[in-house]
Design a protein around this nucleic acid. Structure first.
Lengths: 344, 344
DNA sequence: TCGCGCGTTCAAAGCGCTTTGGCATCGATT
DNA sequence: AATCGATGCCAAAGCGCTTTGAACGCGCGA
């Protein structure tokens, strides 16, 4: 059932039917009612491609996912973000277009999206320091919102981000207040912007008490379970003073951490304290009533909602300047932290 | 730069340029070369919407994700599947359209996808028993491939699935061979087809040795970490004979399981054996060289690739009947299994 | 009576592409 | 010399929608 057929059934012109459906004022209310009723009866839906060819609006938003194992993206954070964004798109009538591309093809993918006119805007995932995609997109004139920030990018841009620096600063302060001095930090890959901010927060909190981070206790890798396990195991087995607390960048890493702690015959929360960041992933809850891990908590799904909303705003009101949304993480206390054990 | 402009620059008609670009034979090879060169120079990309309006092909494939927390979908399995499918789509020139919808709106979402003509086919995720979506899609005449199967669906359909029954049968046999008799089974939600098949495999292996499953040792829930923890904790604390082994439906659940085991002062692999299913998620590896958990292993990313390939085949050769692809899981031995402890 | 404005409707153009149905040109065949 | 089949190119129609510009009928004031 297309517009032509529908208008024939109604004995009206395509023009009138189109206007009636799209809420234009110059159509008699009684005919409009007839049209709406008929559209419903025949399950009429305007063909998206024809509609966007005519209007020039794609009514779709793109997400380009670089497909590298060394990347932070093919990970559970992504599905939660997408779920949040998807809710908003659905409500606003936008489709979501996903492209999985190799890192090398990423720039081309953005250019194609633009040239082929398949989307009205894009979300940029996993920004790196001075991320090249930002200037690229600005050049292409394609509206975009970054999930995270890209320190060192000179052009202004829109973003939604968690205050990673502040979150990790507070987490570190908590551990310091509990008496911990030897705090290990298992960070994410420091090519990623958020990881750098987290490290800054960590270092700032130490510096504020006249302490300085011990390089031997700092790692930066992709945030897997094995990473947490391997690092904690090595640090706990090392000669010399051991860490009494760990700061982890993700729940998955913290889980690996816990495995190493327990294998070493220690008890998390008593012998070793752990604080982690928790993205509130829907399938990976940090315990039920009482959190397993003390954590800096911020919902990535909510971030998805906000980024989507911001982008749609940008698309529909192109003249507004770039927008920003800095979300504060909550520091929630769970069972993984306690006072630093006193020296024997 | 559109076709009209490009053809004017070349002094050719749109027809010829279009044919040259699309590889039609009735164009002189030298002009074709000229056209290709010019297209490259001006970064010409045909507008997708116009192209699909003209051809009737959307060059896009839809994935509809029901947005319920009670669902198995907003989970890491999903992102890996998508990553696999996305690779194939990209190579074949298809876009991927994602719709996140509430469960109630799911049927409508499929109908709209069809009526709006935005996709050439869809992948169905997380099939339930006698899933209604299958007959719906068959009625709509929209090509589709199911990731998994829907027992009890009378119409034939295409699917890609793991042999869940066989995998869990083998896992159970392994535990039986190791001398375990009290085996607990933490299954996924048994509204889902795969979970039912897994239970059948579990029960069949027991039955083959004249044993019968103990209902007190069987659970069926969404596969979270907390589920594994809570269930194992309760079972290990119960009066009467305790399980000596656990069969878990996902790595996440197994991780929760391990937490409960260790909190109970037991050692996994010695006091309590664990076998789990492992989807080989890229971010959640089952250990590094040596697997943490003994597991039935099957790559969900590979399943994504295969499903995408199958669907594209169906779309491009619509007359071929439904296809099937049953993947066998590997049973890999890790550190979580050992002989059943002898009774004291 | 005429002309005007208003409310309502329509025919047709246009979005950027593919594809049908010609139309020349030219070498080969009769 | 006339015919024919390739070969290579083009004009125009059509995909399903929106939107421009015009038209129609009607009531109203002049």
């Amino acid at each position: 059932m297309n517009l032509k057929q529908l208008s024939q059934k109604l004995g009206l012109s395509q023009t009138t039917v189109s206007r009636a459906l799209n809420g234009y004022p110059e159509v008699n209310e009684s005919t409009r009612a007839r049209v709406l009723e008929a559209a419903r009866r025949y399950h009429y839906r305007p063909n998206t491609r024809a509609k966007s060819l005519a209007t020039g609006r794609a009514m779709a938003i793109g997400h380009i996912i670089p497909l590298s194992t060394r990347h932070e993206i093919v990970n559970p954070v992504f599905s939660d973000f997408i779920a949040g964004a998807g809710e908003v798109y659905a409500r606003a009538g936008y489709d979501m277009l996903l492209s999985v591309v190799s890192d090398a093809a990423e720039e081309r993918a953005y250019r194609e999206l633009r040239a082929k006119g398949s989307v009205d805007g894009v979300i940029v995932h996993g920004p790196k320091l001075a991320d090249a995609r930002i200037t690229l997109l600005a050049d292409l004139g394609l509206p975009f919102v970054v999930h995270g920030r890209a320190t060192g990018s000179e052009t202004p841009y829109s973003w939604v981000d968690v205050n990673n620096r502040r979150a990790f600063e507070r987490a570190t302060e908590l551990l310091l207040d509990l008496g911990h001095r030897r705090i290990a930090f298992l960070n994410g890959l420091e090519t990623m912007d958020f990881a750098v901010r987290r490290r800054r927060g960590f270092e700032a909190a130490l510096a504020a008490r006249g302490l300085v981070a011990d390089p031997a206790l700092m790692r930066s890798e992709e945030m897997t379970e094995a990473y947490g396990y391997r690092s904690a195991r090595a640090m706990l087995a090392a000669d010399g003073p051991r860490p009494t607390a760990f700061l982890a960048s993700s729940l998955i890493t913290a889980i690996g951490l816990r495995r190493a702690i327990e294998e070493a015959g220690l008890r998390m929360g008593r012998d070793i304290s752990v604080v982690t960041h928790d993205d509130e992933l829907s399938y990976l809850a940090n315990g039920e009533e009482v959190p397993i891990f003390t954590a800096t908590r911020s919902s990535v799904r909510e971030a998805g909602r906000r980024a989507a909303g911001m982008l749609i705003g940008l698309i529909e009101a192109p003249d507004t300047g770039p927008a920003q949304d800095l979300m504060e993480a909550q520091l929630v206390i769970g069972g993984s932290t306690g006072p630093a054990p006193t020296e024997e």
